[in-house]
Design a protein around this nucleic acid. Structure first.
Lengths: 214, 214
DNA sequence: TAGATTGTTAATCGATTAACAATC
DNA sequence: TAGATTGTTAATCGATTAACAATC
């Protein structure tokens, strides 16, 4: 009995991409059904969690067989909003901005990168793949005319909040933050962190804790 | 009354890097003290959460003044295990592997990248900055002789689990996973996900939910 | 001193897990 | 049919928030 995603808890949403990746993989192997126990095993969860999570979605399992993989994939795609292409701009044409712009997985998964911007005017006009690096002044127009929903912040920490503000002013609805700093966003703009240094620090801490125990 | 980090909950550990980044920033501005309320405001938390979090650390605040910034930074650095350099290898010399290897922030924050490996033998010997891309066969030796603790998986999804297994066999204690797939790890190896496509999908879902509400 | 801020306890809130009737 | 697996309720577990005495 799905009530749509509006009430879906964040921890559940965070797991949906993992389910999707696994389901796609199983589909490629030719499998047709998957049980909550099998998904749990593959993703280090309990079958209880899997069933609870999927109950937030518009999908029904079948006793004795589990969930139909095609069905499950389609439902996950819809729930995640991947059924229509999302347009993305990248701000920052450093190593990461470049890697992101060239990352063919994004396009394959429904994210269309339609602009790369950098405040360093020396980079303006240079190409990254088929994209041309543009000046920050062109950002608002590009976001508006292309109806860009997502902005990726790939700039040094000192510039991150300013870049985020500009992206929000231009009208993006969500921000992926790769900068070292926390970004303060308007309540109607979603922010997801992909701060790699912070993740390495978390890893460092996790390693330290484990060695303390055993 | 700190009991060390062994019992620190994961959500707290995840916030430590954010505290550290903020504290470093405040130190740069010449500030000497920070209150839990000020930290909360900057990081979108409540002051209660901040005080609870910091109570897991070996630091004491001072009534009416807050926490000494130098003290707090040092404590966070120790807690996160950043007081000694961590050695890192990168597997996968694609766009991301390259960007990571060239990312000067890692070195600045105490992560020393001491090897880049790729199974594509055509890349062997090529340089990324001052590093030379090596064959996967050399991985075990490199991890052992350099005492590498962290492996970064920056390869296509199909190869990710195999690469992770090899890293674990070689002896790394933690893995940063940038691949699209979930990685199953031994219980004594920590895994932190930095799966950018998954994060974009999560963002897409968050955006979708918000537009449903308002 | 009066007032601000901590550290900590207790209350609330929410997520995960266990259990089991319903079902194919 | 018997057995496996779902969907869902209830129990547990854990994290966040509120409250306030202690303190500088």
């Amino acid at each position: 009995m799905s009530v749509g995603l509006n009430s879906t808890p964040v921890p559940v949403i965070r797991r949906l991409p993992r389910y999707l990746a696994r389901v796609e993989h199983l589909l490629e192997t030719g499998q047709e059904w998957v049980s909550s126990a099998e998904l749990a095993e593959a993703l280090d969860l309990t079958s209880s969690t899997v069933r609870q999570d999927l109950s937030h979605l518009d999908v029904r399992g079948v006793s004795k067989r589990g969930y139909g993989l095609v069905d499950l994939r389609n439902t996950l795609v819809t729930a995640l909003g991947l059924d229509s292409k999302s347009k993305v701009v990248i701000v920052g044409a450093g190593n990461f901005g470049r890697a992101l712009a060239l990352h063919e997985n994004f396009a394959r998964r429904g994210f269309e990168i339609c602009g790369v911007f950098d405040s360093n005017s020396k980079l303006n006009g240079k190409k990254i793949g088929s994209l041309v690096i543009e000046d920050m002044d062109r950002l608002p127009e590009a976001v508006r005319t292309d109806k860009v929903e997502i902005g990726i912040v790939a700039v040094p920490a000192a510039a991150a909040q300013d870049v985020a503000d500009r992206l929000m002013d231009a009208g993006v609805r969500g921000i992926l933050n790769l900068a070292y700093t926390h970004i303060n966003a308007r309540h109607d703009v979603a922010v997801v962190d992909a701060r790699l240094v912070a993740l390495l620090q978390e890893l460092s801490c996790a390693i330290k804790m484990r060695s303390g125990i055993r």
